[in-house]
Design a protein around this nucleic acid. Sequence first.
RNA 1: GCCCCGGUAGCUCAGUGGAUAGAGCACUUCUCUCCUAAAGAAGGUGUCGGAGGUUCGAUUCCUCUCCGGGGCACCA
Length: 579
Amino acid sequence: MTPQELASHLARILADIIAERGEGAAEGGDRSGTGAAATGIEVTEADTAVERPKNREHGDWASNAAMKFAKRIGANPRELAQEIASRVAGIDGVAKAEVAGPGFINITLDAASAGETARRIVEQGAAYGTGDSLRGERINLEFVSANPTGPLHMGHTRWAALGDSISRVLRAAGAEVTNEYYINDAGAQMDKFGRSVLAAALGEDTPEDGYPGEYISELGRKVIAEQPDLPDLAAVDRGAALELAQELAYRQQLAEIKDSLERFNVHFDVFFSERTLHAPGDLVGDDSGDRAPSPIEAAIDRLREQGHVFEDHGAIWVRTTDFGDDKDRVFTRGNGIYTYFAADAAYYLSKKDRGFGEKIYLLGADHHGYIGRLTAIAGAAGDDTEKDITVLIGQLVNLDGARLSKRAGNIIELDDLLEWLGSDALRYWLARYPADSPLALDGEKLRSRTNDNPVFYVQYAHARTCAVDRNAAAAGVDRSAFAPELLTHETEAELLGKLQEYPRVVAGAAELREPHRVARYLEELAAAFHRWYDNCRVIPQGDEPVEDLHRTRLWLNDAAGQVIRNGLDLLGVSAPERL
RNA sequence: GCCCCGGUAGCUCAGUGGAUAGAGCACUUCUCUCCUAAAGAAGGUGUCGGAGGUUCGAUUCCUCUCCGGGGCACCA
């Protein structure tokens, strides 16, 4: 019996009771309806979800449904709880159901009923924990989106780890997710980047307000290596040389960013170029030589048709205040050039046109001023500002005692962190805190291989399950028997309970976009596994014979390993078979 | 001035209205002739920043307030 099944039973029982009481009231002459529907009170499984009590004396699972519904149906909470409990006790697989406190229903399962979970998990394998709570949703998840004018640094690292894990969790809940990276490859920053690289390639001083950093010099060398006649070109046509250098450096830098992300086990489905938003459309078909408007122009036209665009002082504005923004925003500057925000608007429409329902933006706290205007664009585009757009704001990362980058001055690069700490430790640490929680990287802790470092604690538990598996094979313990009623040790009940919680943890993490819940869960699961391991042997000692208990425990060991693997995968962390 | 996010054990932090608020670290003491001791067991800590309110019940929701961080561009 899983907690989901238990919740389902509870919902049915509660609905029955409400219906019966409704009939009783009707006989009294107050009402004419029959059944739960007639009372207007609906019971869903969410209402009757059971939780794992902190105190083991409170049974395997507890429900507060009686307290939730007592008032609405005019019943005494404890009496209602008692009525529910007496019916729950009759369910096959339930050992007992008791009322406690103000109206909690504490339920204890038969060992066999709980133990059945182990086999189910093994049979479902990697699919255990996946669900369909977000089935049918097409989600666009944009994160990192760092300018392609330099290497990824620590500021991007948290969003890379978090975004990729959010994506995995959403997919586990059945959503169709596209991971997207917006490349700011148009505008002044790119010009500055190009001038800096060209200067470096030609051996000139860094231009005023150009980019500093050793990586610019490296890019300059790479550009020269690829295009040795660049200095000659620069001598005759500086503009052409600049364009060429900028383009080569951009491609090189973007390729390096992609490499870094892959090493970090972070995958993007789409790299979306801002330039494509500025580019004119195709030739129109009337031989005039005219072109269709660029996506930005088209976007402004569309918003104008919706009545949200106006002109003032020679600039084009969008009335975002209609949708709760602090102030209206401009699309064109005085010199006629489109603002960054105009591209943002066109980009949003692109996402909408590509069929995405919810668009999620993962931004740093320094961008929190963007919430209002992005939400307003969603509204202006005719979307539901509650459901179709989500802006997740995360706090920034501090690093204590970090080594500084050798290449880029004060910037700490993702590549340096990877080399120093390793992908697993880094990803796990960054994913185990809520996005809005301040987070500090402690290099010493992340390099340590003790309880200090939770990723090793979890990975060790997994490696242990693998070691048990190997040793069981050698000792002649196989899977030829499965007798769940033998799993009666209290650490086995605890471990089984934890394993049963996993699907709901994944669903909750997806619903709230909080993958840290998976990490915290894994730590609890690992602890339950370690305690079980210390108390219950899978392999007989000495000359003891192999019994069904050992074979059944092997199934439980397999199940624990499977769930740890599944969970770590959601975080993009490996599950080694040996440490 | 306005907006956002924090404030929970000595430290770092969990805790989407429920029972005695938890974990790791730090400190003390135990447990490997037996599946990985990178583990387990035992030991104690809290005005959940403060004050009101909603509720059968508030660390959780609302209002005010104190402290800390961030943000309020015709920049990108």
